[in-house]
């Protein structure tokens, strides 16, 4: 009897804890953009901003997931060593590309306005980047991977309906197609980008 009670208490405890740490995708996105906005509006050098943005990206973006998605069907033909090498190269490429793109913005204001749950794994969070004198308002949607509700992760940014992950995938596909699907050429291209 005591053991039964103990298990019930333990179960309730874990359920409560799980719910306590579960993060809603829209709250997650708003807090992430707030963190990025804070970095961008601080009086830091461009290099410092890039380093801070990289830290945020490592915590909030599913870089490996995006990496495999953008690689497309060729992923299935790679051995484990090639996969490991690719993930490392992609991670370096992604962080450099992502942070230098964002670092150009100064104090961007992004408001989360809605969310749409696609299934248990994905939620789309809708937001707007407020317009300035130089550019119009931009709609940004975030594909959030919610399989682990305690640790949601960004898998795609959809700007005015255009998916960045999909664009990246088609870019990699073009590089591979132009070079007889030789994965080493993609590795070399990623290395060159990172080193320049």
């Amino acid at each position: 009897m005591k053991l039964k009670k103990f298990f019930i208490v333990i179960t309730i405890y874990f359920l409560t804890i799980t719910n306590l740490y579960s993060i809603e995708p829209d709250v997650f996105v708003q807090s992430t953009v707030n963190r990025a906005s804070k970095v961008l509006s601080e009086n830091l050098s461009k290099d410092q901003k890039i380093e801070e943005l990289k830290k945020i990206a490592i915590e909030t973006v599913d870089i490996n997931g995006i990496g495999f998605y953008t690689l497309g069907p060729i992923r299935k033909t790679l051995d484990q060593n090639q996969k490991d090498e690719y993930l490392e190269l992609f991670r370096n490429y992604f962080l450099k590309s992502f942070s230098s793109r964002l670092a150009e913005y100064t104090n961007p204001e992004i408001d989360v306005i809605n969310k749409e749950t696609l299934n248990e794994k994905y939620t789309i969070v809708n937001s707007v980047l407020k317009g300035t004198a130089e550019r119009p308002e931009i709609k940004i949607d975030w594909r959030i991977y919610t399989k682990d509700s305690d640790n949601p992760l960004i898998r795609d940014l959809i700007i005015e309906g255009l998916s960045l992950a999909r664009t990246q995938k088609e870019e990699f596909s073009s590089i591979l197609n132009s070079n007889n699907n030789d994965i080493n050429f993609l590795f070399k291209t990623l290395k060159d980008f990172y080193n320049n």
């Binding site: 998605y69 069907p73 696609l118 789309i124 594909r143 795609d156 309906g161 998916s163 999909r166």
Partner: peptide, 12 residues
């Protein structure tokens, strides 16, 4: 958004 996205790509 779901109209421009193919979820099977992500499922893969």
């Amino acid at each position: 958004i779901i109209a421009t996205q193919d979820d099977s790509d992500w499922e893969e």
